[in-house]
């Protein structure tokens, strides 16, 4: 059985749509004080730089990460290149060796004409 106290849909609508009939004098007085304050104070315009704070911070953060990664990553050696230690070792090994050709012969061989039939 339906409860006679139960509110109908129209009653709920009416209640929800209700506005206060009047406001208190104290509230109106506080408003007048606030109104004078609002009218007398220029709203502070947010500096344009403020809009860039968060995107800017994110960018700087990312840039730091990129630079850190870039600095930390070792430059990969080129394929087939020798290390400095290998060059030293090679130099040491070749130090006592004597030249196979005397300078004149070597010069002559280097300046052979390209028409050679070899």
């Amino acid at each position: 059985m339906k409860d006679p106290r139960a509110p109908s849909d129209s009653e709920i609508n009416e209640l929800l749509a209700g506005r206060l009939r009047r406001t208190s004098p104290d509230f109106e007085l506080r408003w007048r004080e606030l109104r004078a304050e609002l009218a007398g104070t220029k709203p502070r315009r947010a500096p344009w730089a403020k809009w860039l704070v968060w995107p800017g911070l994110a960018t700087v953060g990312l840039a730091v990460v990129v630079v850190a990664l870039w600095i930390k990553s070792p430059v990969p050696p080129a394929a087939g290149s020798v290390t400095f230690e290998e060059l030293i070792a090679l130099n040491d090994a070749l130090q006592p060796a004597s030249a196979l050709l005397d300078p004149e012969t070597r010069e002559a061989l280097l300046n052979l004409p390209p028409t050679s039939s070899l």
Partner: peptide, 17 residues
């Protein structure tokens, strides 16, 4: 750059900003 993906991301962020 050793990390082209990150560079791309940074470019995107800068673009969006």
């Amino acid at each position: 750059s050793p990390c082209p993906g990150l560079t791309l991301l940074v470019n995107h962020v800068l673009g969006i900003t």
